[in-house]
């Protein structure tokens, strides 16, 4: 019994990481109805940027985040204004295929720059540190990751519903023309949304890199986990996305407990079950 409690707890904490994969995806879909196929590769790009920063300056990965986050945000803004804004419109093909092309470019650029060898960010003692909760032992890093996920989602939620920036995001999402009449330049607003999304992706990339080894090919898988968390939670609901990540994480750790080869498959099956039973996700956005 206690063994399974531990497994589920691990899954919940893993869900925090998946929610971080998902948050950026959810944000840009909410603001501009864009689904970024390169999202996973951008997470891996952030992990590699973290790697280079730690090696170049000999700093801890958390310190590297101070550089990686603004760089990712900058990449996001430039990417959005330079390329992605041109793809937005009623036709879904251009954004899909352009981000797909980006995914291939990022993946192969990483291969070219860092080779296919798996890499890892080393964070020192925190990686193995653990705390005891009753008779359970919980890794400090997963706990921290989950805490960061909750903090990120709470801040995004606050930003979205309580700041002028968030008001702009919602207005542009509702009606681009009228928002433009209010003095919002949608190209800039979309750029800011992507910058924010990729900053979150930066956090996700660093935490992923500390947790497991990574190589240029694993971006697609991270995109899928993020996407599953979004759909399980329900489109347009950030807290739902966290719940979706947790459900995915728990399904995966339970699957892995039964048979290590089943970890990822169990997550996919959980996603398909939700899709079959509740196609709009478990917590779809309530229209007020």
């Amino acid at each position: 019994m206690i063994e399974w409690t531990g497994v589920i707890l691990q899954g919940v904490l893993l869900g925090g990481l998946y929610a971080l994969f998902a948050a950026g995806l959810s944000l840009i879909f909410g603001v501009m109805r864009l689904v970024n196929i390169a999202h996973g590769d951008l997470i891996i790009l952030a992990a590699y940027l973290g790697l280079s920063t730690t090696m170049m300056f000999g700093v801890h990965p958390f310190a590297a985040a101070l550089l990686v986050l603004p760089v990712m945000a900058g990449i996001g803004y430039v990417l959005q204004r330079g390329i992605l804004n041109q793809t937005l419109g009623p036709d879904i093909l251009p954004p899909l295929l352009v981000t797909f092309g980006l995914s291939v470019i990022i993946q192969n650029a990483l291969l070219e720059g860092y080779s296919a060898d798996p890499q890892k960010l080393s964070a020192g003692a925190i990686e193995t540190a653990s705390v005891s909760v009753g008779s359970l032992t919980v890794g400090l890093l997963p706990l921290l990751t989950f805490g960061v996920a909750v903090a990120v989602i709470a801040s995004l939620q606050w930003m979205f519903y309580s700041t002028a920036l968030g008001r702009g995001f919602r207005a542009v999402s509702d009606n681009q023309d009228i928002a433009q009449l209010m003095g919002l330049n949608k190209a800039h607003v979309f750029g800011l949304a992507m910058a924010l999304a990729l900053a979150v992706t930066g956090i996700a990339g660093i935490l992923l890199g500390i947790r497991t080894s990574f190589d240029p090919s694993i971006g697609g898988g991270r995109l899928i986990f993020g996407f599953e968390a979004v759909i399980i939670g329900g489109l347009g609901n950030l807290w739902g996305t966290l719940a979706g990540g947790v459900i995915l994480g728990v399904a995966q750790t339970i699957g892995a407990k039964i048979d290590p080869g089943w970890q990822v498959l169990a997550g996919h099956i959980a996603f398909l079950v939700v899709l079959a039973v509740r196609p709009n996700g478990l917590f779809p956005r309530v229209q007020h």
Binding site: V35, I92, L96, I224, F227, H268, L272, L275
Partner: peptide, 22 residues
């Protein structure tokens, strides 16, 4: 997967392919 719209349909098909692979 037809329950997923537009770009989400695309990623849904990818999930299916992963289910097949695994």
């Amino acid at each position: 997967i037809f329950r997923l719209k537009g770009a989400y349909f695309a990623i849904g098909t990818w999930v299916m392919a992963e289910v097949f692979r695994l």
